[in-house]
Structures are given as structure tokens and as C-alpha cells.
Simulated assay, not measured.
Amino acid sequence: MNDEKNELVEKPEETDKENTDENESNNGLILGMCLGLSVGSMIGIMREDMALFTAMGLGIGLCIGAAIDALNRKKKSRSTNSDDDKATDKEEE
């Protein structure tokens, strides 16, 4: 009976961690969109073609944001793999 209660308590913590990872991965997209939209709007104001440059800035920002997210995921996976390798090396000794 106590084992079942412990399992129920541990599961929400794991899902919270997964949700945090998903939120962190979207930060690059949000940042890219905001920067692209602002830069595109500024260029659109100067060139007197807001619609075109706002859309272009948003598209370019999304691409840059996706690249930032990919780099962050790659860094996290490398650090996780290196931590796992260190743990297995210590166990082997």
C-alpha cells in the first residue's frame, strides 16, 4: 500500500520536469519571432512597405529561433550523455 502512494507522488514530479524542458525548448522560437518581427517592422517603416518586411522578418526570425532551439537541444543531449558516461566509468572502477 505504501509503495503505491510513493509511486503516485513521484509521477507528477517527472511530468513537471518534462513540461519544463518543453517550455525551455520553445524559448528560442519565441525569441526569434520577437526579434524578427521587430527588425522587420523597423525596416518596413524605413522602406515604407510594412506588410512585406514584417512578414519577412517574422519568417527569418522563426528560422533563427529554430536553429537556436536545435543548438540548445544538442548541447543538452551532449551534457546528458557525458554525465551518463562519467557515471558508468565510476561504476566500472
Rank of each mutant, 00 (worst) to 15 (best):
N23G: 12
I45M: 13
K75D: 10
T15Q: 09
T20V: 04
L62T: 05
T54D: 04
G61H: 00
E24D: 14
K75L: 11
A87D: 15
I30P: 00
M50G: 03
E4D: 09
N26E: 14
L71Y: 09
N23C: 11
N72T: 10
D3E: 13
A55V: 06
C63T: 15
L58Y: 00
T80Q: 03
I68V: 15
G32M: 04
L35M: 13
S38C: 06
M33Q: 05
N27L: 13
E13W: 08
L52D: 09
N6I: 06
I43D: 01
E4Y: 02
K74G: 05
G61R: 00
N2V: 08
I45E: 11
F53A: 03
C63M: 15
I60V: 03
M1C: 09
F53S: 05
D89T: 08
V9S: 11
G65K: 00
E14K: 15
S41I: 13
K90S: 11
M56K: 02
L37Y: 04
G44V: 04
A70Y: 11
I64M: 01
E18T: 09
K76T: 12
S25Q: 14
N23W: 06
K5W: 07
E48C: 10
T88Y: 10
N2T: 11
G61L: 01
R47T: 15
K76H: 05
M42L: 05
V9K: 14
L62M: 15
S82I: 00
I60E: 01
N81H: 07
N27F: 08
N26F: 06
L8D: 13
A70C: 10
E91L: 00
E22D: 13
L29P: 02
N6W: 01
D89S: 02
E22W: 05
F53E: 02
S25L: 11
D16A: 09
D16V: 03
S41P: 00
K90I: 11
I43Y: 07
C34I: 10
L62G: 09
A87M: 13
I43Q: 04
G44I: 03
E14I: 15
A70S: 14
K75A: 06
L62R: 10
I60H: 00
K90H: 11
G44A: 04
S25P: 05
S25R: 14
G40A: 07
A87N: 15
A66K: 09
I45L: 14
G44Q: 03
L58M: 06
L37I: 09
L62D: 06
S79A: 15
G59Q: 00
M42R: 02
D84Y: 09
T88I: 08
M46A: 08
E4K: 12
R47P: 03
K5F: 08
M56T: 12
C34W: 02
L29W: 08
L31F: 14
E92M: 12
E18V: 11
C34Y: 06
